[in-house]
């Protein structure tokens, strides 16, 4: 099971700003290990964000998103108590969903 994300969602003046920190190696496939063997690419390819179960954003990522990716985005509307969920899927097919409550 991949490590959890940290999600913070705060509503202000009719906009909910969501900040997400994911746990992922984001290997590019260009690096080599200490013996010189290439380290296979392994990275998050798809990200989906939902507000109260309704999809608001999706993203496609490549390997050049930084290790332990950070993501921030802004949703129109949203209020304290609403639920924001973020799901990622990586190039090995692993997936992780976490949820936060808007403050």
């Amino acid at each position: 099971m991949p490590n959890p994300m940290k999600i913070r969602a705060a509503s202000k003046d009719g906009v909910t700003e969501v900040k997400v920190l994911m746990n992922h190696e984001m290997e590019t496939g260009f690096r080599k290990d200490s013996s010189g063997a290439p380290i296979p690419a392994w990275f998050i390819t798809d990200v989906v964000a939902k507000l109260n179960g309704k999809e608001v954003m999706q993203a496609q990522w490549g390997a050049s998103v930084s290790k332990n990716p950070y993501l921030a985005f802004k949703i129109k509307g949203g209020a304290a108590g609403d639920k924001v969920s973020v799901t990622w899927t990586d190039s090995k097919g692993e997936t992780r969903t976490d949820e936060a409550t808007v403050s």
């Binding site: 608001v56 993203a59 998103v65 950070y70 993501l71 985005f73 129109k76 509307g77």
Partner: peptide
């Protein structure tokens, strides 16, 4: 439902 405003971190 989104504002056109996104932030992330990339490798260069």
């Amino acid at each position: 439902d989104m504002l056109a405003d996104v932030t992330t971190r990339i490798k260069m």
